[in-house]
Amino acid sequence: MAKTNIATFKFGLTDVDSAKLKTECDLAVEEITASNSKDGYMARGKALIGVAQKYQSLIGDDPLKLDEMFKGNTASTGTRESLILQAMAYETMGKGAVLEDPKQGAEFMQMAYNFRRQLGDSGDEDLNLMKAYSRSAKCWICGRPMSGEGVHFIAAPSNVTPMFKKGSENDIIRSYTDDCRSIYICLPCYTAISNRADAISRNYYNQAMTEMRAMEVRLEAEIAEVRSSVALVRR
């Protein structure tokens, strides 16, 4: 497009400004590059924010011609695209940051939620993640405090009897859910128990299989013996 001297051209009934379309194409390329960046979540998020900034400053409230031409969408504008990219950027950073710092992850998800709201979306997914990342609990097994439900700890189904509930009713951070039907377990405890349970199960499985194979051999020998007896009787 940069090589042509055409200032405007017609696409169907739409007049398209070549320079503006070129800007849009350049930004679309930058957007794809930023989205596919392998430089880590923070770098990817910041790159997306950089592209969002360009959409805002270079296109602003003007409609995006690419969307109009190829998707028939006339409601898309530079500002709207900028908000979408910022929401995506904070979602990327939130989902990455939660691994090291759940509170920071929750803050990023909150920003993403606010951007989604500005776009007119419900933003419920971001809100739920924000709530989960910021939720704090104490591990029922090791007693360590932790944040980030679903990432650093999980709620495992269990029966918390009134006696246990009574003993920790005044705790600020609890180790069981409000309905007393699950206990919180941190990921290290959970994976340690889970791995050990897997190893034990595997051991029992192997033991059972060995015994079954021995039984199989024994049964096959008995069947062969019965068959030979039957053959002898027939003669």
């Binding site: 509170k103 929750a106 803050e107 909150q110 920003m111 606010n114 709201r117 500005q118 924000m130 910021s134 704090s136 405090p145 600020i172 951070i173």
Partner: peptide
Amino acid sequence: PKVDLEYGEYRFALNSLIS
């Protein structure tokens, strides 16, 4: 831990308001 919980709520509400 108690402050963390309450402060988180207020900070969330503040961020929503200033948007």
